[in-house]
Design a protein around this nucleic acid. Structure first.
Lengths: 115, 115
DNA sequence: CTGTATCCCTATAGATACTG
DNA sequence: CAGTATCTATAGGGATACAG
């Protein structure tokens, strides 16, 4: 998100995947290329501006490929790069942990650290 | 770190570990309990207010244990909960990926998506 | 269809001073 | 020692309108 150097690798990784809609975009691009409009329909809550913004950041970080077809009307396709695909297992781990955390919140009632 | 429900598990997990100093705090607590002052000395850039804040959030999420010794002067110890320890492999993955991303930035010169 | 330009709001975090 | 209270700055995200 900003250009300054992040010296902590974890922060660096988080900087790439942190963004309100990036996990969703990522999920929708797993296994398939999608046009801008398709992503928009898949994520109706996101405005064009923000969707563009997040996609550009992902592209700038090299995890997403932006393919512009010089046509009228324009056609732009987005897909995961091979590099971006290396994030899949990580996103998967995060998802698993987050799922457990959510369940913990729910039937946990009061918070009782177990360590 | 707000109270509203996050429906995406990935977002939920990110909410827990996202915070400017949380990865650092986490790293410093791996394998050892530390007092507030120790953490402060380990992370001289963080103000007491922010350090307290981030520790409280981690504790509220159940990944860190806050142990208060009713003494004068006060003594407060922080450690990873068993639950928090389940984040270690995830932080490790993030670190590995982030490291690769940093190296990529450096000797990559121009960004050239490889997918 | 796929964006950009403006303006605005809020969350996060930092500086600084005070406290049990 | 380990905090809290106030004030401020900024970055990320959003509403809305315009454009190639």
């Amino acid at each position: 998100m900003n250009e300054e150097k992040l010296f902590c690798p974890v922060e660096k990784a988080l900087a790439v995947i942190s963004g309100k809609w990036k996990p969703h975009i990522f999920r929708h691009l797993i296994g398939r290329t999608k046009r801008f409009g398709e992503l928009q329909r898949a994520l109706p809550q996101v405005t064009r501006k923000i969707l563009t913004q997040q996609l550009r950041e992902l592209a700038d970080d090299g995890v997403v490929i932006r393919n512009v077809y010089p046509q009228v009307p324009p056609k732009v396709e987005y897909s995961l790069s091979d590099y971006g695909k290396t994030l899949i297992p990580i996103m998967s781990s995060l998802s698993g942990w987050g799922q457990a955390h959510i369940e913990r919140d729910n039937h946990g009632g009061a918070k009782q650290p177990d360590g």
